[in-house]
Every structure is written in structure tokens, then in C-alpha cells.
Simulated assay, not measured.
Amino acid sequence: MQPTNPTRDSNPKFLILPALPPDASAIIACGNAAFAASPLRAAIWPAAKAHLTPASEFQHWRIARKAGKLEGGNLLSFKAVLSEAPERLVGYAAWMAPGAFAEQGSIEPEGEQLPACMDGEVHRGFLAQLDRERERVWEGDSGFWYLAALGVDPEFQRQGVAAALLRWGLEQADAQGLPVYLEATPEGVALYHRFGFETVRVLETLENSFEVPIMIRQPQSKLPALEG
């Protein structure tokens, strides 16, 4: 279902390509930069626990985990790279097609062994909240596209990268007449609103100190301009 040829969309500076297992390290680095200030990230990977797992061991675990997700399963993953330097990854996105949750049941597999430097209770609790919210919204219906991840290197934000990464999934959903579902960061809400998403619920997590907007986009006949 992923495109086999690169696409330039409306911005000649970037190419959108399928993300593959060798891209795991670059995607992790991009995510680290994009969400460095996230309170959720700080809660799941607390500084007070960092010493419990050697940095190299933790990085190896993350790369292997990410590569496994890119290799198969239900995720349809993409990367944005510079047209003039394709080795430079500047953004990434991951989608789940309709029916994926009916097969998988959750965003992450249950029973995963986590490194000691992570707060497993916070991590698993947050994922359980996402599962409950999704079930509350869809009531067992799996006929929707899900944007599982979207991140852009801060150096390249507000240059059309996120919009270009959205194109593939939105086009798939519109062609099939299906809605798109996502959990946004507060910073991402304005972008998603521009592409027709509406906030249907707001999930409060981290003891009600952090809000996660739950958003849905109904199928549309035309995408807005993807620049910016």
C-alpha cells in the first residue's frame, strides 16, 4: 500500500519516501528533537531513572524496536528527506489502515519488556487511556484511518514538511470515503484544523496536567494547499 516512487508534493525542497528499518536511528533522532520539551516524554523517560539503563543499551533497544515496527506489522511509515540530500531525514509519519485495530486491538503490544530507565506505569497507563478513548469514540467500528505518529525536525518546521507527510493518508481516506483519527499534541492542533480535523474530545493525562486533543477528519473532496 506504500508508494514505491518518491513524491515531491508541492514543495521541491523535500521528498516523501517509504521509511524502512535502516531509517530507525534517524527517525528516533528526529523524534528526540521534535518532542524534546514534551511533558509526556519527560514523564515516560524521567531523568531520575536515566542512570538505570546505560545510554548505549537504551539506544540499541529503541533502534531495534523501531526497526521492527518499520519492517512489518500494521504501520505504514514514511519519511521526509531533503531533495538535495536524501540522506537527511527531516520528518516522519506512521499510519494504520482501516481494520488494523480490529486485528491488533491496541497501538502497542501487551506485555512488552521495557528498560528500567522508563516509567512503565506511566507508559502503559497512557497507552491504555488512548485505547479507551478510541473505543469510546468508535464503539467497535474499525473503518477509519489512524495517524499513529507525525514528527518534524524543529529546524524544518513551518516549511511544509508535516503537510506533505499528511498527504498520503488523507488522500487514501478521501478516496475510500473514510474518516481519519488522531491524538494531537497541543502544538499540532492548528495544523490539523487547517486540514479539516475537528477536536471531538480532550484527554487529560499525567494527573490532569497534560491535555491530548482527540481529533477526527471526515472525508473531503479537496485537500487544502500543502505549503507551510
Rank of each mutant, 00 (worst) to 15 (best):
L89K: 01
V90L: 09
V90N: 11
V90D: 11
A93Y: 11
M96P: 00
A97T: 09
A97N: 01
P98K: 07
A100L: 06
A100W: 07
A102R: 12
E103P: 03
G105M: 04
S106V: 00
I107F: 15
E108P: 03
E110C: 09
E110Q: 14
L114T: 04
L114K: 05
P115W: 12
P115S: 09
P115T: 13
E121D: 14
F126G: 02
A128N: 12
Q129Y: 12
Q129T: 13
R132Q: 15
R136F: 05
V137H: 15
W138D: 03
D141Q: 05
S142W: 08
F144L: 02
F144K: 01
Y146P: 01
Y146C: 03
L147M: 13
G151L: 08
P154N: 13
E155T: 13
E155C: 12
E155P: 14
F156P: 14
Q157C: 05
Q159L: 15
G160I: 01
V161Q: 11
A162D: 08
A163W: 05
A163Y: 07
L166Y: 01
L166D: 00
W168Y: 10
W168P: 00
W168S: 00
G169Q: 10
E171K: 11
E171R: 15
Q172H: 01
Q172R: 06
A173D: 00
A173T: 02
A175W: 01
G177L: 08
G177N: 06
P179R: 01
Y181A: 02
L182K: 03
E183H: 12
A184V: 09
T185Q: 08
G188V: 07
G188D: 09
G188K: 11
L191D: 05
L191S: 05
H193L: 03
H193S: 03
R194P: 04
R194N: 11
R194A: 14
R194I: 05
F195S: 12
F195G: 09
F195K: 09
G196A: 01
F197M: 02
E198W: 11
T199I: 05
V200R: 15
L203C: 12
L206N: 02
S209Y: 06
S209F: 03
